[in-house]
Design a binder for these strands. Structure first.
Length: 705
RNA sequence: GAGCCCGUAGCUCAGUGGUAGAGCGUUCGGUUCACAUCCGAAAGGUCGAUGGUUCAAAUCCAUCCGGGCUCACCA
């Protein structure tokens, strides 16, 4: 079996079907669920690490005699993909609006195909032994059915509702997003002290705000209970300095006495806390800023101006009428959309929500069944579940699962939701309205949050909602891996949804790897341009070396600082290790004396010692892989091969070569096998040249210790 | 503001109760040897600080300092 390069070996394995799981097998199963990378472009070093880890465990388990399923796939990544794709269109002078939904979607799918090609290339180059016959894309028809089932069941169980609530709105992406899709940036801003005149008196309440442009939508003033200075105004009205509107003054314990003047202007349309307070005091909700991030008619002369620019103008308007008493420099954190970094605008929008309390409670009860690595991550999830908010699942995008709700164009023009309204939950267009019999049914315009489908990943990949043999055999997954940054968005959701829909935890072992960072400790990102391209490293040092280098970083929950140079040094080190292995092979097999009278039994002290060391190394490596401490397994093997075997034993064996030959061959074969999960290509190449071997190293057995 | 993690050799990091470790770097020596080099040796660390538990602490506990992450409605 002559193969010229790594790609040939990969094709050989693939063609032989070694990557395929076999549900009808009598072997015990072991299942690993690949986290689907986002459909946005190249795979980066973090993906390379994730996939190397999964592949090592998969290959290890196969050699231990398990029927292994390593299931691959890709996530359609709604908001993220849509942003990326729209940028591509922009460069071509096109846009969503110009193309229209249908044409835009057609082109989006074509763009998807391009990205797919690049993903698959990287996976095959890396030697990932996934069962490609079971590959899943989160937006493919099969998954659309599963997601529909998810939605339908939630609806039937009364866990879904639609309503106008205050949401985090990204004006750039043009959609509502969730708290956990935001991040905070420290900004220096200004804190404005604004005077609100008391109606009928020549007295004022002073209020601090960082957003004077929202004054136009102020509808009340809250002070903390028993405010020494302002409590006499309770029940009176203040006057909105910009809008002239009357503002009722009342107490509310949610106002922080320690902050500012102890009085808070209430703008329910543009602030979460104000929304809550406003609701409890029956205040009107007004909008000074619209969904495009521009000022509304409410802002008078500022109408149409971007909110960010309106801030200064609103301040000037206030100053002109003498309503500003003081301005301070102020440093605070500003919420931005984690995808596009635009400042998020809280506003009222009609969205769909999932009631998450019952789901979270069930998750909490079952969390102990999952082995988290590192352990302390469990606590973070516990805390999150305990304080969970309802999940806003609708997004005003095109790239995603369309909300499977149809409204009657005749009797439900306002798109009301309810069982006795002209509304149907259906995958396909319903023929007629259940209420009036009309045939003009219109589908909800919005799509579902990406994580609404990704959360179903552990079961949708195995055929949910059908009760498949795969679901029975491979679920719960033995192993799942993820970057920690999506633990709430994704991991927490998978746990809730799996428990809800199939009544089981989704995975038994949950491995959170660390984040690779640059030497300053910053994340690798496109915008910083500090990324390291795994393909470049592979080209220079070979896949096996890159994989080995990455296992050094595969410690649960531990971030690793690195750079192109440091990665290269590590890779070079393992490239040299590969060379060492080749030379060991050359010495033991190619250059062996002709006149060998081999014997298996040796009473020689050196032979006994190396075999003992081999045995304890195998034990250690096996234990460490079982514990998912790949870095320790790799270290143990590395030290044994290079130092115990090559430097010491082989050197000594040169004086008694013939006698040592059986031991040399035995140790060589075993280290090649034990290295296979980590260095799949080189080990197969050498394995094939051993005097006795199976058709592939993938079919050989992990040494028992 | 709360929680979690980290602080070990010049650099990047393992090690988490029993005589301080690896890779790279540095210095010295060897190498027509299985070695796209390799081998041998050396230098280099009060394991962030202080206190405690213990026969024994880098490791456990407390406090503090420094760095990071996560969460939170601070106007």
């Amino acid at each position: 079996m002559e193969k010229n390069n790594e790609q040939d070996w990969y094709n050989f394995w693939d063609k032989q079907g070694y990557f395929k799981a076999d549900p009808s097998s009598s072997k015990k199963s072991y299942s690993l669920l690949m986290p689907p990378p986002n459909l946005t472009g190249e795979l980066h070093l973090g993906h390379a690490m994730q996939h190397s880890i999964m592949d090592a465990i998969a290959r290890f388990k196969r050699m231990q005699g398990f029927d292994v399923l390593l299931l691959p796939g890709v996530d359609h990544a709604g908001i993220l993909f849509e942003g990326t794709f729209n940028k591509v269109l922009e460069k071509q002078g096109l846009s969503k609006r110009k193309l229209g939904r249908e044409e835009w979607l057609k082109r989006a799918w074509e763009f998807r195909d391009e990205i797919y090609k690049s993903f698959h290339k990287t996976w095959t180059v890396m030697g990932i032994s996934a069962d490609w016959s079971r590959e899943v894309f989160t937006f493919e028809p099969k998954i659309q059915k599963a997601v529909f089932e998810e939605f339908k069941r939630f609806w039937d169980e009364d866990l879904l509702y639609k309503g106008a609530y205050i949401v985090q709105w990204c004006p750039k992406c043009g959609t509502a997003i969730e708290d956990i899709e935001m991040e905070y940036q420290e900004r220096i801003g200004k804190l404005y002290y604004v005077k609100y005149k008391i109606e009928g008196l020549d007295e004022y309440i002073e209020i601090t705000t960082v957003r004077p442009e929202t004054v136009y939508a102020d509808v009340g003033i809250a002070i903390y209970p028993n405010h020494p200075k302002y409590r006499e105004y309770i029940g009176k009205n203040a006057v909105n300095p910009l809008a002239g509107r009357k503002l009722p003054i009342f107490e509310d314990k949610r106002v922080d006495p320690k902050f500012g003047t102890g009085a808070l202007k209430i703008t329910p349309g543009h602030d979460l806390l104000d929304y809550e307070i406003g609701k409890d005091h029956n205040l009107e909700i007004l909008h000074a800023i619209d969904k495009m991030g521009k000022m509304t008619e409410l802002a008078g002369d500022l109408v149409g101006i971007k909110a960010v620019e309106a801030r200064k103008l609103a301040f000037e308007n206030l100053e002109k009428i003498g309503a500003i008493s003081k301005v301070e420099e102020y440093s605070h954190s500003v919420p931005v959309c984690e995808r596009c970094k635009t400042v998020v605008e809280p506003l009222i929008s009609t969205e769909w929500f999932v009631k998450t309390k019952p789901l979270a409670e069930k998750a909490l009860k079952n969390l102990d069944k999952i082995n988290f690595l590192p352990k302390n991550y469990k606590k973070m999830l516990v805390d999150w579940y305990k304080e969970i908010h309802d999940w806003s699942i609708s997004r005003s995008l095109w790239w995603g699962h369309r909300i499977p709700v149809w409204y009657c164009g005749k009797c439900n023009k306002t798109h009301n939701v309810g069982k006795d309204e002209g509304m149907v939950v259906s995958f396909d267009r319903p023929e007629k309205c259940p209420k009036c019999g009309g045939s003009n049914l219109i589908q909800d315009e919005q799509v579902l949050d990406t994580w609404f489908s990704s959360g179903l990943w552990p079961i949708a990949t195995l055929g949910f909602p059908k009760k498949t043999t795969e679901l029975k055999r491979y679920f719960p997954w033995n192993f799942e891996i993820s970057a920690p940054e999506i633990k709430y968005l994704w991991i927490a959701r998978m746990i809730m949804l799996s428990l809800h829909f199939v009544n089981e935890i989704p995975f038994k072992n949950m491995f959170f790897h660390g984040m690779l960072r640059d030497l300053q400790g910053q994340k690798f990102s496109k915008s910083l341009g500090n990324g390291i391209d795994p393909n470049e490293l592979i080209k220079q040092w070979g896949v096996d070396s890159v994989r080995m280098a990455l296992y050094g970083y595969s410690i649960p929950g531990r971030d690793g600082k690195t750079s192109k140079q440091l990665m290269s040094e590590r890779c070079k080190n393992y490239r040299n290790f590969g060379t060492k292995l080749k030379n060991i092979y050359r010495f033991v097999i190619e250059l062996k004396p002709d006149s060998l009278s081999s014997s298996d039994q040796s009473e020689n002290k050196d032979d006994k010692e190396i075999l003992e060391k081999l045995n304890s190394m195998v034990q250690e490596a096996t234990k460490n892989i079982d514990n998912f401490s790949l870095h320790l397994a790799v270290e143990a093997i590395y030290n044994f091969v290079w130092h115990d075997f090559a430097d010491i034993y082989i050197e000594k064996s040169k004086n008694r070569r013939e006698e040592a030959q059986p031991t040399l061959e035995k140790v060589l074969k075993e280290i090649i096998i034990i290295l296979h999960p980590f260095m799949p290509f080189l080990t197969e190449e050498l394995y094939q040249k051993l005097p006795e071997h199976k058709k592939s190293i993938m079919l050989d057995n992990w040494p028992k210790s």
